[in-house]
Design a protein around this nucleic acid. Sequence first.
DNA 1: CTCATTTGACCCCG
DNA 2: CGGGGTCAAATGAG
Length: 383
Amino acid sequence: MESADSGNQISIVLVSELSRIHQLLIQLESQIFKQPSTATEAEAEAELSKSIVSQLLSSTEKSIFLAKSCGSSNLNLQLQGEPASSPRSASASPSPRSDMSELAFKCHDQDDNSNKRETCKKRKTLPRWRSQVRVGSMSMSMAGVEGPLDDGHSWRKYGQKDILGAKHPRGYYRCTYRNSQGCLATKQVQRTDEDPAVFDVVYQGTHACTNKSNPRSGSNIISSGSNSNNNIVNNQTVGSNHDEDYLNSLKATLTVKTEGLGPSSIGQEEAPVCNSISFSFPSTPIGNGHVASTADNNFPSGSFLPSFANSPATSESNYFSGVGVGLGGLGGFGKVDSDLTEVISVLSAATSTTNSPMGGVSVDFGFDGLDFEIDIDPCSFLS
DNA sequence: CTCATTTGACCCCG
DNA sequence: CGGGGTCAAATGAG
């Protein structure tokens, strides 16, 4: 059933992507009929057109990928949730502690003791997927104040740990509504060694909570879902209509650029395709202040809000909306986690034309709520 | 006062 | 046995 779900959600994302393409085409069309009066203006128009085309390309490619995934979801998307039989089902939990920890993984069936042990005793049994998020490469880069890691959900940090071999500690977050709504979603955030501006985010479990970003905040997103599975419909409806507005405003303010990863990095000759799209949010006077609760150490707990995110504090600010599906993002990273089968990797380069420190917030492909891991080489489909 | 983060300890699993 | 993940008391912020 999950696969059906996944397919469904992919379709949703796909629809969003197509709407996006539609919008871009409209924009391009108007662009074409513009008659610049001056040379510089003409140049600017040309640039804009190029940019639009780039976006179109990547969106199209993304759509193709999604369509393929959808069509063969059984092949490409591997569900990882609840393996029918878990190796450890037998191990009883002697210690009181284990009781509690297990709760974390299966709290919903507390009333059914026998069952709980079978379904989710294991850490690894929950669906998990990973994405990489890059924070603007800005001035504060090293500072450690970062935190674009807001994906529309409200997270609460419950732990931090130094990981062997990693320069930076890993932060453990779980859904704020875990207790109140039994939402089991958790995520782990860790900076990559190579680029401190890039965070490796591993999501586990899906959001059962209904508290997610308020769609009305004007910064609702597109496909990038960050919506829990319960809100698919919402995403769908709001998504498409809202998308348009959103995109329009987005276009007006964002700088979207695609970075082609050289074929070389991927070994795909004919694929100019593996891009990662990056958004740069315009002047957002963030950076100082508000955010970075968690200070220098590591990760932000939750959210810093770009100007257009009106949501309060740490709750759901669904501003991000990154739509960048870095289908090829891996190229640059070559980072394959053996543990995770694989990945949706998203990179966004926050380089930007802005000076906002936090300017570039990139976000992940919001497969939020999907119970699967992508088990394919992001670029393989291109060949 | 309430809620979030920090941090050391505990437990699971490879 | 050790690394990784989670808990929960202590602490801090609003």
